[in-house]
Simulated assay, not measured.
Amino acid sequence: MSEKPYTPPDHGTSPSSTGQLMLVATPVGNLADISQRALDALRMADAILCEDTRVTTKLLRHYGISNQLIPLHDHNEQDRAPALIDRLQQGQCLALVSDAGTPIVSDPGYKLVRAAQEADIPVTSLPGANAAITALTLSGLPPIPFMFLGFPARGEARRHSFAALRAAEQAGLAATLIWYESPHRLLDTLKTQQQVFGADRPAAVGRELTKHFEEMVRGTVAELIAHFEETPPRGEITLLLGPPAAEDTGAQELDQALENALESHSVKDAATLVAGIVNLPKRTVYNRALELAKQKKNR
């Protein structure tokens, strides 16, 4: 059955009729990976909001589409949103695209969507390509549950964010973790993961997904480090880290260390002592110590 052409709302003749904001997914690499519904929407919209006009122009030219392009990115979204909301309230239909994949996911547009929703303007999504989901299906890692975490922080903040995730795992989190990363930071990120999560954690790196040189590298974190030290990564990168092994005893070890420390220390001092041993954020360890102390008191 052929897909019906997408029809935006009827603008009508009244200037007070409300338009619609359409979130249109675009290919992550292969230009053929776009739906007919998305192409119809890009043709029929009053304007297309895009992250980079050069990237979107390439897609539109490929499909013979001519339309007004309005740049919308991290640096101008806040200032541009009121005027765009005004256009929508006047009955215009605007399409929002990112450079690649599903809009809003690690891309601009969230502020505009929130503003449109608060103004009771209809917002719809035309689904399509997404690099995180594509990589997940190819990784060989457990697909459910998973957490998408955007781009990792840089420098010391990266280690702290990974340590917080490791603490969550010690409290019971068991999920495949997904990040986007730039090729020149991939090795540093993998090395930080090795320090926090261990060298033997299963992981995968998706590179240039859907493109001619698509590659999925699978192995332990240590094996991925060795691979990319020998073969420097290029292109768009999606990084996945598998969940901890079923026999992972991190949570029990944390609780045991805290219970031992609480026998002779205050909650604050016990948390400080144990945080230095388990390489976890002090605040996280303190919260767990506080919980264990309450449990002990209520026994």
Rank of each mutant, 00 (worst) to 15 (best):
E214G: 09
A38Y: 11
H11E: 10
G172F: 03
G101I: 01
R154K: 15
H212Q: 13
N130L: 02
E214N: 09
P71S: 15
L23Y: 08
T176V: 09
K58F: 00
A25Y: 08
A129V: 03
D79C: 00
E169P: 03
N298D: 14
G64H: 06
D188W: 00
M147D: 04
G29T: 05
I225P: 12
L88C: 11
A270F: 07
M22C: 09
S2L: 12
Y63K: 06
T7C: 08
E253Q: 15
Q117P: 00
A175H: 12
G12T: 10
A157K: 15
R299H: 15
P233R: 08
S17I: 05
L126C: 03
N279H: 15
P108M: 02
F197M: 09
T272D: 11
A32D: 14
P243W: 04
L187F: 06
R185N: 08
L209E: 05
H212F: 12
I48P: 04
S161H: 15
H75W: 10
I65Y: 07
P281D: 04
T18V: 15
R158S: 12
G242I: 07
L21I: 05
N76M: 09
N287P: 00
T18L: 15
W179H: 14
P82D: 08
K191Y: 00
P5N: 13
H265W: 09
L96K: 03
L292V: 01
M1N: 11
L49I: 10
V196N: 02
N260V: 11
G101E: 04
E253C: 03
H184I: 12
H73M: 06
G198F: 02
R114C: 11
K282L: 10
D86K: 15
Q170T: 02
V24C: 11
